[in-house]
């Protein structure tokens, strides 16, 4: 029987304290290979600290983490050989050119890079030769972010750890980034990205984890999370009708009910609502699909 592949990321009881502050509390997290995992949380929730623990930039106070089965501490070199990393704050020396940055960082990787792939990345992010020969001090914020994306993806690592990757990118480059994530995922890569942009997470991620003050309070597939949110149903009648029936299950919440308009929050099947509407003079029916943020924001607030 074949041994199952180890998770791309596995953290067990991962804890990091800075003096009295507990930045990450006993984090248990598994990210399976091939997933695009969105790591969410408010500022200071511990997302970047977790990422830095995975990269062995920070040493855990307790617990452990592994990348594809390689312990991030004791077998850190093997773990990091499988990672492409884009930091949230890009730390390039201002006197270096873009080409020098890519050269140094590629020289530090174990495997030889495919020139064709790097060229493709540069083209996708509208980087020209002249841009690469300019010094970083002449780069805009967006240019630096694009260079960081290229440097993270150029090694074709099986795991990409991206800390707020689209911050500072214009909409076109955001689209280019989403397309790139989709492409590398199709090739089997795992993507672990932290983000504040819930619409972006909704669009590109398979699973999410929500961190609140260092604790993982939610880890689920995006579809499951979406199902946790109610659908908003608005019904407009051509003429006055009786109030909604009282026999609906508790998963159907009446927000507003006037003679010609009902507004409902539906967390389950729409069946009872549809049955009640039969024979009524419905003029319009609007169902707004559940959104990720409807759930995640409640987790941020601590109301879920």
């Amino acid at each position: 029987m074949a041994t199952p592949a180890p998770p791309a990321i596995a953290a067990r009881g991962l804890t990091k304290r800075f003096g009295r502050l507990v930045a990450v509390k006993a984090l248990d997290l598994v990210v399976e290979p091939g997933q695009v995992f969105g790591f969410l949380g408010l500022n200071g929730a511990g997302k970047t600290t977790t990422i830095r623990l995975l990269l062995d930039l920070l040493r855990p106070t307790a617990g452990s983490a592994a990348v594809f089965g390689h312990d991030c501490r004791s077998d850190g070199l093997a773990a990091r050989a499988l990672v492409g990393y884009m930091p949230g704050e890009v730390g390039f020396y201002r006197d270096m050119t873009g080409r020098q940055v890519l050269g140094v960082l590629s020289g530090l990787s174990r495997d030889a890079f495919r020139d064709g792939w790097r060229r493709e990345l540069l083209e996708r992010f509208a980087f020209h030769d002249a841009d690469l020969d300019r010094r970083i001090r002449e780069y805009s914020t967006g240019m630096k972010r694009k260079l960081a994306i290229v440097s993270a993806f150029q090694a074709e690592a099986p795991l990409l750890i991206l800390d707020e990757p689209t911050e500072g990118l214009d909409p076109l480059m955001q689209e280019a980034f989403y397309a790139l994530v989709s492409d590398v995922r199709q090739r089997g890569a795992t993507v672990f990205l932290s983000s504040h942009v819930l619409s972006e997470v909704d669009r590109v991620c398979d699973r999410i984890g929500v961190l609140r003050t260092g604790e993982l309070v939610l880890a689920a597939s995006v579809d499951d999370v979406r199902r946790m949110a109610p659908r908003l149903v608005r019904i407009v009648f051509r003429q006055p009708v009786a109030p909604p029936p009282s026999g609906w299950p508790p998963s159907i919440e009446i927000v507003e009910a006037s003679a010609t308009r009902w507004s409902l929050r539906v967390r389950s099947s729409m069946g009872p609502v549809v049955e009640s509407l039969s024979g009524l003079p419905v003029a319009d029916l609007d169902v707004r699909e559940p959104r990720l943020e409807d759930v995640v924001i409640n987790y941020y607030r601590g109301t879920m």
């Binding site: 830095r52 990269l55 062995d56 930039l57 070199l77 093997a78 990091r80 050989a81 990672v83 990393y85 930091p87 730390g91 390039f92 020396y93 960082l105 530090l108 990787s109 174990r110 440097s151 750890i161």
Partner: peptide
């Protein structure tokens, strides 16, 4: 820059 270097092998 240390982040970029030490996040490599």
């Amino acid at each position: 820059f240390a982040d970029l270097v030490l996040s490599r092998p």
